[in-house]
Amino acid sequence: METKSLTCAELGAALGITAAGAKRLAIRHGWHKVQGNDGKARVAVPIERLEVERPVSSDDTSAPR
């Protein structure tokens, strides 16, 4: 399985969730965590999980009125 190493904040941004939600998701799935040289924890996220489409928000303010 191919993985990508991301911080919880990066994972959250990629999935459209909060960093705290991303951390809970990583714990729930048991994804491997390592401490980076910068002191930030990084999670090995399966690439397939990052390719999942996010739902489109219904409160799009860019739509013409």
Rank of each mutant, 00 (worst) to 15 (best):
K4F: 05
I47V: 15
L50V: 10
N37L: 13
A44V: 03
V34Y: 08
G36L: 11
H32W: 08
V45H: 03
G21S: 04
K40L: 05
P55W: 06
Q35W: 07
P64Y: 05
T18A: 05
R65D: 09
H29F: 04
T61A: 09
G12M: 08
I17T: 02
V52A: 00
P64I: 05
E10Q: 14
I27L: 13
G21F: 01
V56A: 04
S57Q: 10
K33D: 01
S58K: 15
G21C: 04
I47N: 06
A63T: 14
Q35F: 08
T61C: 11
V45Y: 02
D38S: 13
A19T: 03
L11T: 04
M1T: 10
P46G: 00
H32V: 07
G30E: 08
R49V: 15
L50G: 03
R65E: 05
M1A: 12
L50C: 03
A44M: 15
M1L: 14
E2H: 13
T7V: 08
D38L: 10
T61K: 12
C8S: 06
I47F: 07
T7M: 08
T7L: 08
R28E: 06
H29I: 00
I47C: 07
V43Y: 05
L25E: 01
I17R: 06
Q35M: 14
L15R: 10
R28Y: 12
K23V: 00
P46A: 06
A19V: 01
S5T: 10
T7E: 10
L11N: 00
A13P: 07
L6H: 05
V56Q: 09
E2K: 15
G36N: 11
H29A: 10
P64D: 04
T3M: 06
T3Q: 06
Q35V: 13
A26I: 12
T61Q: 13
R28M: 08
T3C: 10
G39Y: 09
E51G: 00
R65C: 04
G30H: 01
R65T: 08
M1S: 13
T18D: 02
I47S: 07
T3N: 03
L11V: 02
D59F: 15
L25Q: 02
K40S: 00
A63F: 15
S5Q: 14
G36C: 09
A20V: 12
D38R: 13
K4N: 01
R42L: 14
L6F: 09
S57T: 09
E51H: 14
I27V: 13
R24V: 07
A9I: 06
M1P: 15
G16Y: 05
D38I: 02
A22L: 09
E48K: 15
L11H: 01
W31L: 02
A63Q: 13
S5G: 02
L25F: 03
V45S: 02
L25M: 06
A19D: 10
K4Y: 04
A20W: 04
A13S: 08
I27C: 06
T61E: 05
H29K: 15
K40Y: 10
A13H: 06
I27E: 14
T61D: 09
S57A: 12
E48W: 12
N37G: 14
S58Q: 14
E10A: 05
H29C: 12
S62K: 15
D59C: 07
H32T: 12
R65M: 13
T7S: 12
S58D: 12
V43M: 06
K40P: 00
G21M: 00
K4G: 00
A13K: 14
A63P: 03
L11G: 01
E48Y: 13
K33G: 00
G21W: 01
P55R: 11
V56G: 00
